[in-house]
């Protein structure tokens, strides 16, 4: 397990690279919105996993959608990773979390990689390429860097690219992040839990799996050529849910021998068995955003019995890092240990 001091260093490395202080808030995924919903498992989910949320009864859920960028400013229209943190409220007041983002794969394999990445991918000034630099790129059959967004004076793009050029394992994650775009709605993006988990079936069979949320409304991004708007996602979600619930299907992909179990930089092939585990129905934007969005502390290692974390070093590091981040902002504490979840 990653010790507390390393967890604090992880969080500090993120804080050190923020464009502005965020106070007692999350250092990344700072801007977010809490939503109330309900999850109902599919009729086959219980055959694969004994966790309470997969037994078929409706399970209340709290969801926090977020923009990936850290910092106090909201830039909904910027190309950015989005987050969907879900808590299944199972019996006895306990929770089981599933934290997902629009990024399919992560860009570092372990804590050491992460520290090296943060050394290289530092915030740096970002400005418009001159027209002749763009023309040179076009002649080289390269795509010129995009123009900065309004008020965008710095970002980590150049450093992240430099890191990826030196480390092939990082290339997929960095590439995906660079072209990810902005969704027209939080309810119109796919979210991936990135890590592998082990699920236990009623007959005791344990399977390595990866989870993804697929929007029933379909995936749709904004026009990348249009001038991005800073604030539209909260209002869009609120108005959408006032008219009609939004739904997500939870898909579970089962890994095979030889698939990357403990490495979240490596994708699994699309040829793996894919199980529909249930449907999440989002009902309304929470009235108490402080309690249901900002102070709720998700942790990818908070898992109901029947789901276990893999030995993915990043997943393990997130256990401590999320707690260190929670302590800084005074959110709800982690209630379960890995032993409880086993």
């Amino acid at each position: 397990m990653v010790d507390t001091s390393v967890a604090k260093q992880l969080v500090q490395a993120i804080i050190d690279n923020l464009p502005a202080p965020v106070g007692p808030r999350r250092p990344v995924h700072t801007i977010g919105i809490g939503v109330k919903g309900e999850f109902v498992a599919s009729n086959v989910a219980r055959n694969y996993c004994i966790a309470e949320q997969f037994q078929g009864q409706p399970v209340p859920a709290s969801v926090r959608f977020s923009n990936g960028l850290g910092g106090p400013d909201q830039h909904d229209g910027w190309s950015d990773v989005r987050g969907m943190a879900t808590r299944f409220h199972i019996s006895d007041g306990k929770g089981s979390d599933l934290i997902a983002t629009t990024l399919g794969e992560f860009f570092v394999r372990n804590v050491d990689d992460f520290f090296k990445f943060t050394e290289i991918a530092k915030l740096a000034p970002y400005s418009r390429l001159s027209w002749w630099q763009k023309l040179c790129d076009l002649v080289k059959l390269k795509v010129p860097d995009r123009d900065p967004y309004l008020n965008e004076t710095e970002n980590v793009n150049a450093g992240a690219l430099r890191y990826a050029n030196q480390h092939r394992f990082a290339q997929l994650g960095v590439f995906q992040a660079a072209v990810i775009g902005a969704p027209v709605s939080y309810a119109r993006a796919s979210y991936h839990a990135v890590h592998t988990f082990w699920v236990t079936a009623p007959n005791g069979v344990r399977r390595p799996v990866r989870f993804s949320w697929q929007p029933v409304a379909g995936v749709c991004n904004t026009d990348p050529m249009a001038v991005p708007q800073d604030k539209y996602l909260f209002k869009e979600l609120d108005e959408r849910l006032k008219k009609w619930p939004a739904r997500f299907m939870l898909m579970m992909t089962i890994g095979e021998a030889g698939d990357a179990i403990d490495d979240c930089t490596k994708p699994w092939p699309g040829t793996r068995l894919r199980i529909s585990m249930g449907t999440l129905t989002l009902l309304k934007v929470s009235e108490d955003q402080e309690a249901d969005g900002e102070r709720i502390s998700f942790n990818p290692n908070r898992l109901a019995p029947g789901i276990e974390p893999s030995a993915d070093p990043i997943l393990e590091a997130r256990l401590g890092a999320y707690e260190a981040s929670r302590e800084i902002r005074g959110g709800c504490p982690f209630k379960w240990s890995k032993v409880d979840a086993g």
Binding site: N165, Q166, H167, R168, L172, F175, P267
Partner: peptide, 30 residues
């Protein structure tokens, strides 16, 4: 399915099986 697997196919065909650290240029992908 992924752009980086496409790059790996090209590298494999050219006999390049380098591991990190390397000196790639992702901007040449297009």
């Amino acid at each position: 399915d992924t752009p980086t697997d496409f790059l790996r196919d090209q590298e494999a065909l050219n006999g390049d099986r380098a591991v990190s650290p390397v000196n790639d240029d992702l901007t040449l992908l297009p």
